[in-house]
Amino acid sequence: MVLISLFLSLFMVSAGAASSGLKQAIKSKNYQQISDTYQKDMQKNYSREELIIISYSLRKLKFFRQDIKLNIRIINKHYSAKHKKLLNSIKRGDSIDGDDYPEALKVLYWNLFTSYGEIIKGYDEDSKLVEADNKYFTLFSKILSELEFREGKVDKYNDAIIAHRQYLTNKIFHFKKSWSLLYVSWQQDATLKSDSGEEAGLIVTNKGFCVGGDVGYENYLYHFYFDGCLLYGSGGVKNNDQDLIENYQQSNVPAYGIKAGPGASIIVSSSKSRIGIKLPMIYSVQKLTTPSDPGFSIDQDASLTFIGSLYSRWQFNKWYFQTEFGKYLKQEQTFWGLGIGKEF
């Protein structure tokens, strides 16, 4: 009530008297009644005081768009010349002395500023409507800054609306793609078998490169993607069970394959660095030579394995540096990679 009285006092000079009905309604905080009265006859020639009461009530009821129209009506009716003068000065970039403009006009700008702000806060998704309302919001923010009216409050409210808009923008997922080059290492199992049925497990340790990329969707916080790369490298193996066969050893055995799968990351910094998980499969082919000793063979199927891996990426504009560390599901082997990539 103190606030509305203050507003009213600003408009007391040559203000027409408000009807006793509206006055009573505002005293008893019956904003709905005031709104209903206004809705019944919006074109009526309301006095300035009545318009203030109606505007206040509309804001209380969160009818911000109607309140905006009403405030514009008040400005056009009572402050048109001052308003035009102010806008022209802003456009020209002139210095503006706030004292040249009536306090009541500044309050109306404040009402418009906050009403547009509340409308923007009400949006849950970004759209052209948000953009349109934001243009007006920015305009009134600029006007209030030029007039140096309630600067601290304007700044604070501005920050809140900017943060909300940023949130709406950030929520949107965008399509993203990149290429990458990883230096990788992975292990594979094989079995050395003898005709007599004895076996010895072999571990092949490979290193090489994986060239590929990823495609996915990303917003300010999450990145969901599918990535894949072509694997090429080589590895070595040695039989450790000397009782079974002596000196079975291979080195630089070529290995190639493909690694692909989905991933999800959380973006953890303003530079878009991120950490996440991947669930790729690796299909690799590597042919070990059969031992020269007769009666022995190597059992080595082309392996398809699934990996759970931890992934991190450090973004430097479009370029990034990445690490990946994964463990084969239900197996002991690991896969790791270290490399670079670029978004395009």
Partner: peptide, 14 residues
Amino acid sequence: YNTRSFALKSSTRD
């Protein structure tokens, strides 16, 4: 920590 050895003449589990 996962430790992997790379050797020409052997290959062991991590």
